[in-house]
Design a binder for these strands. Structure first.
Lengths: 341, 341
DNA sequence: TTGTACGCGTTATCAG
DNA sequence: CTGATAACGCGTACAA
């Protein structure tokens, strides 16, 4: 049973049609559309006409004439697993969308899942389809970073400072300081042998969290107590924790590079017969929904993801408006103390 | 420390510039761009010129002239919590993007988070900015459903059949049949008192899963053994399971409406001192990452989310091409038997 | 206050 | 095979 659908190509009404129906010129129609002095009579007639012919503005034409699209791109360069499951990036999107929406800008989020995607998205951005972009988790050597800099598109980076393109603002948190802070609090609970499941050391956030951990420990830092895994991920949390336990069974404290990693670590500790927090204190990072889902709930670092999104959007809008912006913005990321340590 | 950035407005090169640089007319340039007969000399000169002036096509202009955008919208109408955490929708996006990408279409995903968003997205869709749309989880009374039907935009619904717009194709799974199948398998393990944590009964998927459950149980169905909660969510799984245990402590089998719900239920069962699967058999739905993360891993129904996305995209592309499409497509969703039942 | 005319960058048509 | 030229639908000076 087949049916042809979506074929009614009924040409959409244009300003021209509206003008004709209302008995005025196109210029006048435009004035009621985009604000301007119009007589009451004309306005009434035109509004009636608009409804009658079912006029809907053509954004492509508008964009071409106006040379801007009222749209902002949102790109996340995380690997799949994260894009699909990291609630942070969803929260960032929602925050960004909220402020863009208020400014009557359409946020269009573009997925990059292959080289081909990368090419196409590049053309999309360069093609004037967006007035600006928010780029999450890009690194200096990502092709997108160069592209953005080259075409001079108003943009804001989130999550990883683009050291290549110094004049593009960045918004994020102080990973080093927060990691140090939470490790110090862990030390404060009297733990003696503290290890870390570090993750994503090839990203700034991952490397920074390890740095903060080292700083907090100072002389007591022992490289043997660091297990590093490639991704912020539950499964890698399991793996990393196992490695750590193998190396140092007497471990009594663990800093996991993210809540997902911590959740995996928690499961492993439980399997190994260690009680949390009695035998081992465990802390995470992100304050994602993982943190509340585990038993006991995780002590962690709160990432103000929503605010990060909001600020990123604001920075982009300001650049579009031609206003000056500060080159980077670090938001507060307080330690949240729960029961896992 | 403030800096103005993103202000270099270097006018981008146009076909005109390329033509001038290559010493040919715009028509010829266009022919090398979009395929056509061009002499080798001309082609070489033009390609050199393109590289030289750094020409990038302007999509708005192209869209205006060609009357299509080579873009497809992706809308998810789930409540926040789901949008942020349901891995299924991410997988659907990735599947859809894969086939759109191959067809050189840009997938733009639009978030709808307020009435204002709804309005703006409506204008966006109506404005010719996309040639088609994939709509996840829309229901008949969602404004978007009417809009899509009205403007006759090639579209495909995913997850919930739009009974209002019968001529728009739908792709999904057979929720009733799958729910029945997994409940039957649960019965097959010898469980006597089987309950269900039903969720989202206001959505087709939620209602259908309950229907399947009833069908499987037949005469043995007992309304008292159904707890219903508003969302497919971990926290509601906890809540629903508690209600169920209160009503029937002798429960020995549970069908949770989704894996997230099942995970919450599992935690509750554990707290209540019930062993899974020894004392209580538990099954979920979705085969999301939740299913593998729990201890023991969940028996569940596999949702081919990626394939759903692929097919949805294909259906949209076919409509754009004016080809006939079948009105609806149900994909296989096999039962996956693991250790929780 | 209103109408007119031109430009935005591409694509498409039609002679040459 | 190539070069003019007219749309595409809207914004915006400028003139009325």
């Amino acid at each position: 049973m087949l049916a042809v659908t979506g074929t009614r190509k009924a040409r959409r009404a244009t300003v021209h049609d509206v003008a004709a129906a209302a008995g005025v010129s196109r210029g006048t129609v435009n004035r009621v559309l985009n604000g301007g002095y119009v007589s009451v009579d004309a306005r009434a007639a035109i509004e009636a006409a608009i409804a009658e012919v079912g006029y809907v503005p053509n954004r492509a034409a508008s964009q071409l004439a106006r040379q801007r699209s009222q749209a902002v791109g949102f790109l996340a360069l995380e690997p799949h697993s994260l894009l699909l499951e990291d609630p942070n990036i969803g929260a960032i999107m929602l925050g960004a969308n909220a402020v863009l929406s208020l400014a009557d800008h359409q946020m269009v989020s573009l997925v990059i899942d292959s080289d081909r995607d990368m090419q196409r998205v590049g053309r999309y951005l360069s093609g004037g389809f967006v007035d600006g972009a928010i780029i999450v988790s890009a690194r200096s050597h990502d092709p997108i970073t160069r592209l953005i800099a080259e075409i001079g598109l108003p943009a804001t980076f989130v999550g990883h400072p683009p050291d290549l393109a110094r004049d593009i603002p960045f918004v994020g948190i102080d990973n080093i300081g927060s990691a140090r802070a939470i490790t110090e609090r862990l030390i404060g609970t009297g733990r003696e042998r503290i290890g870390m499941v570090a993750a994503a050391l090839d990203r700034d956030s991952g490397a920074d969290r390890l740095t903060g951990f080292k700083q907090a420990l100072g002389d007591r830092f022992d490289p043997a107590l660091v297990a590093d895994v490639p991704l912020y991920d539950y499964a890698y949390g399991v793996k990393g924790m196992r490695a750590l336990l193998d190396r140092e069974p007497a471990l009594d404290g663990v800093f996991a590079a993210s809540d997902a990693v911590a959740a995996g670590a928690l499961e492993t500790l439980r399997e190994a017969g260690r009680r949390v927090p009695e035998d081992v204190g465990l802390v995470g990072f992100d304050d994602s929904s993982w943190a509340l889902r585990t038993q006991p709930p995780l002590s962690t670092v709160h990432q103000p993801a929503r605010d990060i999104g909001r600020h990123a959007a604001e920075l982009v809008l300001r650049q579009i408006a031609g206003d000056p912006v500060e080159p980077s913005l670090l938001l507060d990321s307080p330690v949240v103390w729960r029961q896992s340590a």
